[in-house]
């Protein structure tokens, strides 16, 4: 199960809508081992593509150095699909490299840049195995511990 606060959920959806028809991507970092997604980091899609995303390699290193300095890890790795369902593609599965992360997919195929509902789903991707999980959106994350 992925538990997200409403503000982070809204920000991910807004990012996906803003970047449509290109894929949007980013992470939500949280304290290592906590499973609490607390710090949203929108990333630039260096591929600038409607069918592919990739973090820029220099920005990727900066991001991980920040997380290491804060004892954080990527709790959520998110990206959008802009013409297809919010389900991991073969590419997504093949390239998934964070076994502890929740992989969030947002599909903007219905409403694009406009208001309206999106598909918002979360998955675990480990060794090529995809497992969908429930997404629970709460007003605020409960205090740590």
């Amino acid at each position: 199960m992925l538990t997200l606060d409403q503000a982070t959920y809204d920000a991910i959806v807004a990012h996906a809508k803003r970047d449509h028809p290109d894929e949007a991507c980013g992470i939500v970092a949280g304290p290592e081992g906590s499973d609490r997604p607390t710090r949203l980091v929108e990333m630039v899609n260096a591929a600038g593509s409607p069918t592919f995303y990739e973090f820029d390699s220099t920005e990727l290193l900066d991001l991980y150095k920040q997380m290491w300095a804060n004892d954080e890890e990527p709790v959520v790795v998110y990206h959008s699909h802009t013409a297809t369902e919010a389900y991991p593609s073969r590419t997504d599965i093949g390239l998934a490299s964070e076994p502890n992360a929740h992989y969030v997919l947002v599909s903007t195929r219905e409403h694009g840049n406009n208001d309206g509902p999106v598909e918002f789903r979360s998955f675990r991707i480990v060794d090529g195995e995809v497992t969908e999980e429930e997404v629970v959106v709460v007003p605020e994350l409960s205090p740590a511990g």
Partner: peptide
């Protein structure tokens, strides 16, 4: 030396 897998994917 730092090794980092790309964070990448997409519908294609």
């Amino acid at each position: 030396v730092v090794v980092l897998p790309a964070v990448a994917g997409g519908a294609a």
